[in-house]
């Protein structure tokens, strides 16, 4: 088992789990679960656009240009910033705005996939992996990149800890106290978009929101001390990621994304039951 934990797959899953866990605390505290959903499903829009571009410019598919990843990144960031603008000023009801982007991106992605299938008589390369994630053939370079970017997420949260906490606690008062709440708002959304793009590779676009919700929820069931909440969220995220990875390696017909999410779900249920019947919050 140890050798499995020292592979690029394990490093990638662990790094991603830590970054998602740290952000998930803010997602849950700020009640941004639906925002996470909206950003993750916007990756469909990016992927769909990439597939249509591949039909128009067939050379793209043969090139080494990571055009799918680039367009997914563009769509994720763009959606995150638009959602940020709408939720900050509340000109459009946030739930409605996110719902509109979510379903429209999904529709666009499936439409593009349908057009691609009609023209090429096959699903786009990586379609299944895009939906549910893939971890088997990740390169060490990709693992290192994920580790570095996850480290960036953790460093940003560490450095801007008081601003992020204040904005999550009371954004209006944070602004009145001199915190640049708008900057923090968009920065957090940008970090979410970046983590979503990374996470789509492993957990898939359908299930990546779970990694942004479950670790924080589990941690908040266990503790009411902020520093402990983050530690517990990270431990829960790691347990989910590594548990899912080991399940996939043991029974390789199990897709990695659902395996991770269901492991986290089991942890959540067990935590809830234990919390409900015995442990006080600490």
């Amino acid at each position: 088992m140890l050798q499995h934990l020292l592979t690029p797959a394990a490093l990638t899953a662990s790094s991603l789990a830590i970054a998602c866990a740290v952000l998930s605390v803010f997602v849950v505290l700020r009640r941004w679960s639906f925002i996470g959903e909206g950003i993750s499903h916007s990756t469909f829009g990016g992927a769909g656009t990439a597939w249509l571009l591949a039909l128009l410019f067939p050379a793209l598919e043969q090139s080494n240009v990571p055009y799918v990843t680039l367009l997914v990144l563009l769509f994720s960031f763009g959606t995150a910033m638009v959602i940020g603008a709408l939720t900050r000023r509340q000109r459009v009801h946030p739930d409605a705005a996110i719902g509109i982007f979510l379903v429209s991106s999904l529709a666009w992605g499936f439409l593009a996939q349908g057009i691609y299938f009609h023209v090429r008589h096959s699903v786009p390369a990586g379609w299944d992996a895009f939906l549910f994630g893939r971890i088997d053939d990740l390169s060490p370079q990709f693992a290192a990149a994920v580790a570095v970017l996850s480290g960036v997420v953790v460093c940003v949260v560490w450095v801007l800890w008081k601003e992020l906490v204040y904005c999550a606690f009371d954004a209006d008062m944070a602004e009145t106290s001199g915190v640049r709440a708008g900057v923090i708002h968009y920065l957090l959304l940008g970090l979410l978009a970046m983590v979503v793009v990374l996470g789509v590779q492993i957990a898939g676009s359908v299930l990546i929101p779970a990694l942004l919700i479950l670790p924080g929820t589990i941690a908040l069931l266990i503790s009411r001390k902020l520093s402990r909440v983050f530690v517990v969220a990270i431990l829960a995220g790691l347990a989910g990621a590594l548990g899912g990875l080991l399940s996939h390696l043991r029974w390789n017909f199990l897709p990695i994304g659902p395996a991770i999410v269901l492991t986290l779900f089991v942890i959540f249920i067990v935590t809830w039951i234990v919390r409900r019947f015995s442990m006080p919050t600490t």
Binding site: L160, M173, S177, V179, S223
Partner: peptide
């Protein structure tokens, strides 16, 4: 004041948050 009673923050942390703007980012 909008105070989320379930937010995992204590009294000391709540009060020192009032220094966040004065201290500045970073």
């Amino acid at each position: 004041p909008r105070v989320d009673a379930n937010f995992p923050i204590n009294v000391r942390q709540t009060i020192t948050l009032g220094l966040a703007g004065k201290a500045g980012m970073l």
